[in-house]
Design a protein around this nucleic acid. Structure first.
Lengths: 117, 117
DNA sequence: TCGATATTTCAACGAATATCGAAATGAAGG
DNA sequence: CCTTCATTTCGATATTCGTTGAAATATCGA
């Protein structure tokens, strides 16, 4: 994962509509969602959403697949995990780095909700 | 964690110098680094770096603390974890979501390096 | 083939961002 | 008190980004 890819991914997510769209896709799972449904749920004109989806796609965060006359988008979980891994790389100078105190150490992303699952 | 905070954080990280600075701070741990050292390591003019550090700080990703005549910056791990948690919230529509196949499920950020630790 | 539906591309505008040098601020030490 | 050092604020400029309606593209059903 080179820095440029990461920056494009972060930039893609750093926008209200794109962040919301990506989260909807993350929550939708492998099934994904058609562009029209996304536009409707986000209350964004199709042409605007198309622009945003293209950015997310170019950043490698989502995938496109045609199904009938609709284009189905879905989140690329590998890209998301790569992004997260890049941010935490070599964190905490090799110190504790896993304590329950999230404010001092970089505890992994499995906080609360998932720890009990 | 509201969406606006997340967007500011992502936007702050979506820039070459800021991403590099943040990673240096993440790797530096709780000790942090002075602004001057960051500017030198990143080969960025102090005035430019100051602008970027202000953005990261305003986004809540880093903290500032005076030590003698230097300002020491350090990463806010809680903010980083909050960001990551927000992205993965309710992922995969409740499906597997933890399998070893990172391309189909959103395996937590503990891949490879940390799993064996 | 024709019409209907789903989505993207285009062109253009206003707003926000990155950059840098020079000047200003604020703390330390003699 | 005054100088020095580390860092920030200030302008000014070039670039990038978000938004939109209208037109273009692509698929389906009859």
């Amino acid at each position: 994962m080179d820095a440029d890819t990461i920056i494009r991914a972060l930039g893609a997510l750093a926008q209200e509509h794109r962040l919301a769209a990506f989260r909807l896709l993350v929550q939708a799972g492998a099934a994904g969602l058609p562009a029209g449904v996304l536009a409707e749920r986000l209350a964004v004109p199709n042409s605007s959403l198309s622009f945003h989806l293209a950015q997310l796609s170019h950043a490698g965060l989502i995938r496109q697949e045609r199904q009938g006359r609709s284009l189905i988008y879905s989140a690329d979980y590998a890209a998301m995990n790569g992004l997260i891994g890049y941010l935490m790389e070599n964190c905490c100078a090799g110190a504790v780095c896993g304590s329950d105190d999230a404010s001092s150490g970089c505890a992994p992303a499995i906080s609360d909700e998932r720890k009990s699952a």
